[in-house]
């Protein structure tokens, strides 16, 4: 518990900033919807008519004129990318920061096992992701109530669930990579998150790149599928969960035997 609390405390500023930024942006997106929708006639046709740009963001499948269609696209950009960045940064720093900041000697010569240290750190990341998502959900829920929209709750819940699992996947893979790093991996984490996001855009553009949806977690958070079908594409998510387990196991195995310096 001591270590878990210590970890949370260490990362609290980053957590607060990311949570506030994502909640604020998504909240604002919701609040400006009534304004947007009154002009939506033109915008909708405009967005639907931008060729590959439209399909890249899944806007060919979503009705931008409806609240859920609008929210799906905004959510994908704000919570999807923002949450992925937060998870990647937190995960990639989780183990590597001890060696980078040279605090590893202090930490690992306390009478706690490596497995215990890894677990405390990993759980603290999960809790941080949960805190971020809970806050985001609360803020958007209040915003939705404020503009008097009543979206389908099941669809909304699935959308949030998909993003939560996406963040856990990216966080866990970053954590796995983190175990192998000696120094700062921030670039690797952010680069990976961005690359995965980009992969999904490419996979939306051409049929040949469709297989990328198995690789990137953004494949199963696609609002363009979740909203009209009110379900998640499980075939993509199953692969994502497998990557998550792989990252977790790799992190544990590597770090429990690692020569730290």
């Amino acid at each position: 518990m001591t270590l878990f609390k210590h970890e949370l405390k260490q990362n609290r500023i980053s957590l607060i900033i990311w949570t506030a930024a994502i909640s604020f942006m998504l909240g604002v997106c919701v609040l400006i919807y009534p304004e947007m929708s009154s002009q939506m006639g033109e915008i909708s046709t405009m967005f639907a008519d931008m060729g590959s740009f439209t399909s890249a963001f899944g806007m060919d499948q979503l009705n931008f004129g409806e609240f859920m269609g609008y929210f799906g696209v905004e959510c994908g950009n704000v919570l999807g990318l923002g949450g992925a960045f937060f998870a990647a940064i937190t995960g990639i720093m989780l183990l590597a920061k001890e060696e980078k900041d040279r605090t590893v000697d202090f930490l690992l010569t306390q009478p706690v096992s490596r497995i215990f240290v890894i677990t405390a750190k990993y759980v603290s990341m999960l809790v941080q992701i949960l805190i971020l998502n809970t806050t985001v959900i609360l803020v958007t829920a209040i915003s939705i109530l404020a503009i008097k929209e009543s979206p389908d709750l099941k669809t909304l819940a699935l959308l949030y669930l998909a993003y939560l699992i996406l963040q856990i996947e990216i966080g866990t893979i970053s954590f796995g990579i983190s175990a192998f790093l000696k120094r700062n991996g921030l670039g690797i984490g952010l680069g990976m998150a961005f690359l995965l996001y980009f992969m999904n855009i490419v996979s939306n553009l051409t049929e040949e790149a469709k297989f990328l949806k198995y690789v990137t977690p953004f494949g199963y958070t696609e609002g363009a599928y979740i909203i009209p079908n009110s379900s998640i594409e499980w075939k993509y998510m199953t692969v994502g969960i497998s990557f998550t387990i792989l990252g977790l196991v790799a992190g544990y195995i590597k770090y429990s035997k690692k020569d730290v310096s």
């Binding site: 210590h6 260490q10 900041d101 040279r102 605090t103 000697d105 202090f106 010569t109 306390q110 009478p111």
Partner: peptide, 15 residues
């Protein structure tokens, strides 16, 4: 480790 007191050559702590 619970019976050791260790002082590393470089004493660095959490910021």
């Amino acid at each position: 480790l619970s019976n050791i007191g260790y002082l590393p050559s470089e004493t660095v702590f959490y910021h």
